[in-house]
Design a protein around this nucleic acid. Sequence first.
RNA 1: GGGGAGAUAGCCAAGUGGCCAACGGCAACAGACUGUAAAUCUGUCCUCUUACGAGUUCGAAGGUUCGAAUCCUUCUCUCCCCA
Length: 376
Amino acid sequence: MKFSISHTDKNSKARAGEIITDHGVIQTPIFMPVGTAGTVKAVHQRELKEDIKAQIILGNTYHLYLRPGLEVIEQAGGLHKFNGWNKPLLTDSGGYQVYSLSTQRKLTEEGAKFTSHIDGSKHFFSPESVMDIQRTIGADIIMAFDECTPYPCEYDYAKRSLDMTHRWLKRCCKRFDETEDKYDYSQTLFPIVQGSVYKGLREKSAEFIAAQNREGNAIGGLSVGEPAEDMYAMTEVVCTILPADKPRYLMGVGTPINLLESIALGIDMFDCVLPTRNARHGLLYTQNGVINIKNEKWKNDFSILDENGTAYVDKEYSKAYLRHLVHSQELLGAQIASIHNLAFYLWLVGEARNKIISGTFKEWKNKMVKQMNCRL
RNA sequence: GGGGAGAUAGCCAAGUGGCCAACGGCAACAGACUGUAAAUCUGUCCUCUUACGAGUUCGAAGGUUCGAAUCCUUCUCUCCCCA
């Protein structure tokens, strides 16, 4: 993997760059659609490429390990071949499931015991096994196994957790470096900064993570319920410490406004389930704010979905029709809304990139934040 | 013509003397969702009120009772079976 920055913004910490992987180039800042189970829910790969213009998507170690299982993925020749996505892929490590499935897992220094949410079977994840699993899944970028702490989180717990995540990271790096690429392209490992909302812990973690000298770095444990100001504050602190010449990935973020504010702080990569999950629930993101397409006021509104939209669905379908589809729980509703939201997210980061390059990012960002901060 | 069953809020449906403004489901209306256990979850849902609370309901009318959706009488309507 190679990363290069072509432009930096004078009025903020925003940068425009390129990540080069064996599966292609990623222009940053970038948003990565979440494809947990090897699919971005309700969206076809062809639509991801041609209409949404996704450059990289996610998969999830925990979910893919449970189903279909490693044997299937290995036989397929890796996740790219299995799901037909021949562009860059990133897998999350299961660290988020340590948080989201906290009721069915037990953490120890050695690793995490999970009770499968699918069939109740018992499984054990260690930093080493998670590296092996991600080697087999074969994403271009793989993530360290960490503990994503909840919010709120006591300082003492956050500190102990952080220390363990750091020890886990050493084990992840060791195992990763001892093992080889399983397929005919290279993989890279990103470590993850933790530390909850404590500035001191975040600084300490960022320094530790930077010292591992990997090809890119991630910030985790945010957007788990803390106020947005805390999230920005932590992001800002960490970004000043993480090396500027490597991509910074803010995990699990966020709303369109979160993206723009974080880009201004020096973030290059994002992923989030909001555009896809909320699409399925009828929420559409636009340049002028959020639309709840299920609301009665759209019942007889036959205007096109989004006059500023870049996706074909934006011009093809009316608000009234999408309202009908979502109301009726028709699959096409989820599909249209997901395509719209993802296309919007990709447009947003692409436009941010253009503005950084043209030197007008800050003003544009402020205007967009103001504009998007309402409900339609 | 004879026999039987039934009418409960937008729909389905429980309730068969007080704990009933009336279980539950659906629909409707609104909200939540941030490295996806999510096509999920939450709230509202007779009228007025932000709420407290007040008012009017269980086919219609009348009656019994301290008290009725629940008991009695008459009426209206619906469904089923037999001729």
